[in-house]
Design a protein around this nucleic acid. Structure first.
Lengths: 336, 336
DNA sequence: TCTGGCTATGTAACTAGTTTCATGCGTCTC
DNA sequence: GAGACGCATGAAACTAGTTACATAGCCAGA
């Protein structure tokens, strides 16, 4: 039944012929019905319904020069880290009559460039990229196509593309400052893969600067809950006397918290745990997670508005800085 | 710099004129370079690079009759529930040279129908819908446009669209059977909103059938971690003597587990907790969550392959049933 | 009655590519 | 030396819409 008819789709000329009007009149019925005589309009609409005519998006696009499509190059949707932002981008774009194509890159610069080209091939009018560290191939593709592009998840006013995001370095510094206030001196830092991830790198830089002089050891793991679990196992083996674990993303902190619980380590009595992101679930961990809030949803909205304005009105947006803030909950405590 | 040039984009005719060849030759350079004389080809490619020519996706689409776009109508990307599947759909579609437009519906049938129309307006060749319960408006739009559509997250061989998913009812029954084996008799069932959510309804039906005769009380809450927290508070007030909590989705189970921990209720000694979904994090909760595994990633892959085949080769796919299976971990225990 | 203006509609050009068919020209074969 | 073939290329038709411009018909006002 559905979608199985063999004969080819009717076009606007077929409708015109059947309704015994010109193609212009059919087009008018579709686009400005009020200028068409009621009787004619009704007849044309009848034929449209009868033939099951659907106008070709491509043909409309070729005339308007608009596809109303934007593309997003996102590392992955496999965790809440980006899906919240994508969700918010999509919801905002709808308000502007724009649609969103998602393309995942797995933080692989080559894959990213390839997907960027694919996005352009299907005709996107604008692109969101994640972060500010990309392959030359990507920059070249963007340059050549002249497609409006904004970079998200990273604020850098000096970047050659408009950025909409937070200062990842400052976020890390805020977390570290909190740990130092509480008297922590031996911090294990759990972070995701560095390759192709400028957000992580910026956070590590901030951590290094803020923790200068203190004992601080880095543990690279997967940017997943499981990664946090594995990191804790490693930490307890290497640095049993550490007094705080700083996760560069909540996702890993979830694993850290649960693994510590399993091991019988009391958080925050024996060990403070702090993180960056503040995902919706972070308020409800045990104990509730102290973390630096990154406004992911708001970022999605702002980024979508910026790119929509650029695409629609040809105004290159200014970079947008979204403030992060420390949210103190139950997973950190004064060192005794 | 990027994306700011005022003068209009060069088209294929501009390239032809500058390179002193016909439009046909330029088109050949683009599509079948091997039939063009090397010298001519080089010259044309030089002009293309020099003018920064990018071919119009719309114009190509109008000729090929293909947009290579698919659309997905998804309740939300705000949690891992659907983002894993979407991620997997996108990754699979790339292998077929197709791109994915995401459209979120918030489980609102009207919004869903509206977004479906928008997807068709931008020219998608196929659509994924979530579940099998939709508005008449949606069915009418799909019928009229004759666009291939598959329904995911729900297996129903008798549905008028091909479904790719699991049997939600059976999944609930499996969880309940496990609880009964363990000797549980007073079960609190925590579920998300019913309106517009056939997956939840099917799970409740399965639960009712499997738990017939036992004491079983339903708690409707938000389909989020926070929802689980609130549900526990309600349960402890209403039914302090219940011996098991069955969450119809892991997301709520995360909140349930943490809130019980906070209250000092020992899981699984005092209370068993079981759920449905088996998200990546479920293996690492405290205690590890016993849950019915739903193969979300595999579903994404299968669904993408089915729809890709339909769109590319005009073969209507058969429904695909993905088996769910109980994964017993630490959150359930024999009633003593 | 003539002119002006309005409404409704049609003709044809236009968007930016792809593709079919035709042709010019050089080379190979008999 | 003539027909055959193949390569490289061009002219023009074609995809499916939108839209500028033209015009026919009608009514009102001078």
């Amino acid at each position: 039944m559905l979608g199985n008819s063999k004969k080819k789709k009717p076009n606007l000329r077929d409708v015109a012929r059947t309704a015994e009007v010109s193609v212009a009149t059919v087009s008018r019925v579709l686009n400005s019905p009020d200028v068409v005589n009621k009787a004619t309009r009704d007849r044309v609409e009848g034929v449209i319904a009868q033939l099951g005519f659907v106008r070709s998006a491509a043909a409309r696009a070729i005339n308007s020069g608009r596809t109303r499509l934007l593309g997003a190059l996102i590392p992955t949707l496999d965790s809440d880290i980006f899906s919240l932002t994508v969700n918010s981008i999509e919801q905002t774009l709808v308000e502007h009559g724009l649609s969103l194509i998602v393309a995942t890159t797995d933080d692989d610069p080559e894959k990213e460039a390839r997907k960027a080209q694919e996005l352009l091939d299907v005709g996107v009018e604008g692109i969101f990229v994640t972060g500010v560290d990309h392959s030359d191939a990507l920059y070249e593709i963007l340059q050549r196509s002249r497609v409006p592009t904004v970079a998200i998840s990273f604020y850098d006013a000096g970047y050659h593309l408009p950025t909409v995001g937070y200062d990842n370095r400052v976020a890390a510094e805020m977390a570290c400052a909190h740990l130092m206030e509480l008297g922590h001196a031996r911090v294990a830092v759990v972070h995701g893969p560095l390759s192709g991830n400028d957000r992580t790198q910026a956070r590590i830089d901030g951590t290094r600067a803020a923790l200068a002089g203190k004992s601080c050891r880095l543990y690279e793991t997967d940017l997943r809950v499981e990664g946090g679990v594995k990191a804790v196992q490693q930490i307890m083996q290497d640095t049993p006397r550490c007094d705080a674990i700083f996760c560069l993303s909540d996702v890993m902190a979830f694993g850290v918290l649960n693994e510590l619980l399993r091991m019988g380590v009391d958080v925050p009595r024996d060990l403070s745990v702090i993180s960056i992101h503040d995902l919706p679930a972070s308020e409800y961990t045990f104990p509730p997670l102290t973390t630096v809030h990154l406004p992911a949803r708001q970022m999605g909205r702002k980024a979508a508005e910026s790119l929509a304005a650029w695409v629609e009105h040809d105004v290159r947006p200014d970079p947008v800085h979204l403030a992060s803030r420390l949210v103190v909950r139950g997973s950190t405590r004064q060192r005794s």
